[in-house]
Design a protein around this nucleic acid. Structure first.
Lengths: 217, 217
DNA sequence: TTAGAATGGTGAAATATTTCACAGGTAGAT
DNA sequence: ATCTACCTGTGAAATATTTCACCATTCTAA
């Protein structure tokens, strides 16, 4: 009956959301360099994106710039962090303590960007109990208990492809809502669970389409 | 003068190219499972993509299916490999022998999908000469020479963010045309160079937008 | 004070991408 | 033979996304 759609699902496009972390990363870089302000055109130049797109993207969330001046770097960073729910540190679990799991647990770039690796799980009895970067490798037997007890929402999945789906099912059942999957396989999950994929081969295969393989060698 | 555009830049959308490796991965999985044929709807169900999209995507390259029957898995795999130029193995260099470089060099999933890690470079004198998975770590001093001599086209960039751009410039000058960048920074490269990004934090920050951080803890 | 250059926000237009829906075509069961 | 259930490939329609183009505003310098 309403003349205007009552609560029209004014959803912000996912593709827009996906660019925000990239903007945030570039802005943080600028901030580190001591830059106080920037503009959509400068940001766009750095990222290979049109200035109009940046302005349009940001306009979904409010008005953060000033005409003639541009954006205050620190302020925009703060706003983006808020939008992306990065105002608190997200505790993260790594599943799988192979080479990749080790690399992830050893990487110190998470904390300043909103995440902290706090748990590592593995099945291998010879790995369990070892300490990586201050974190003790736990048995997969403790997976569900720990997730539920600690309210773990985010996991990095670094197990062999054959186990990826079954481990995912366990994570989801226990309450995990975001999984970054490093196994080269597509995961099936309920709608409310967010999956990110990181398969280097998929990205390389995308590139090779555009590269001429000169058969000389 | 031609009535019909002579050679109209009938470019296939990049977004389509980007899905082909995912199709290929799923088809290879099916093949491993012993499946001989599949259909766009089955594939779509597995990947969370509409069947129409899969058919439309493939139709850019030819007619690979049969009405009523679907697609012959092995045949479609072969066609996709050809399209993506995966009929030969691409030799790949890893730049940076930290934890991540180690993990990449140690990963044995590249070869069966078209790539082989053949070189690893690092600046650290205590690392140079060490062998990872059969590959000897070389000095960055040899970077340009080796790239030119071996016609290296693809590199995995696993160096600290502060060095990522300068190393990229060196790679590009030496002839590399595809870079998968693991550093959390945007790279500026000439048009003919393909860049892929792999920054776990960017993907996690994308997810957190959709996850409720119940402040209970 | 004014002129000029730079910039953000934003409807409207232009493109790009996805989905629809259907004309064939296939295979298996009866 | 015929019926039924499935398929693909595809033009057309529907959506989604990006770009355009311009007004209002801000800052700097003369």
């Amino acid at each position: 009956m309403a003349l205007i759609a009552p609560d029209k699902e004014t959803q912000i496009p996912d593709i827009v959301i996906g660019r925000l972390p990239v903007y945030l990363r570039a802005l943080s870089f600028m901030h580190q360099q001591g830059k106080r302000t920037t503009s959509s055109s400068e940001l766009g130049r750095r990222l290979g994106i049109s200035s109009a797109q940046i302005r349009k993207d940001l306009s979904h969330f409010g008005e953060f710039g000033k005409q003639g001046t541009g954006y205050h770097v620190q302020h925009l960073i703060k706003e983006l962090r808020l939008i992306l729910k990065l105002d608190n540190i997200w505790p993260v679990a790594v599943i799988g303590a192979g080479f990749l799991g080790h690399a992830l647990a050893s990487y110190n770039g998470f904390e300043e960007r909103g995440f902290q690796i706090r748990w590592i799980f593995d099945t291998d009895p010879t790995q369990i109990g070892k300490v990586i970067n201050g974190i003790t490798i736990q048995s997969m037997n403790e997976l569900e208990n720990t997730i539920e007890l600690k309210h773990i929402k985010i996991a990095l999945l670094a197990v062999p492809a054959v186990h990826a789906q079954s481990v995912t099912d366990r994570l989801v059942d226990a309450g995990v809502e975001g999984i970054l999957n490093y196994a080269p396989i597509n995961l099936v999950v309920p709608d409310h669970v967010n999956i990110g994929y990181s398969d280097p081969v998929v990205q390389l295969q995308h590139m090779t389409y555009y590269i001429n393989s000169d058969d000389q060698f």
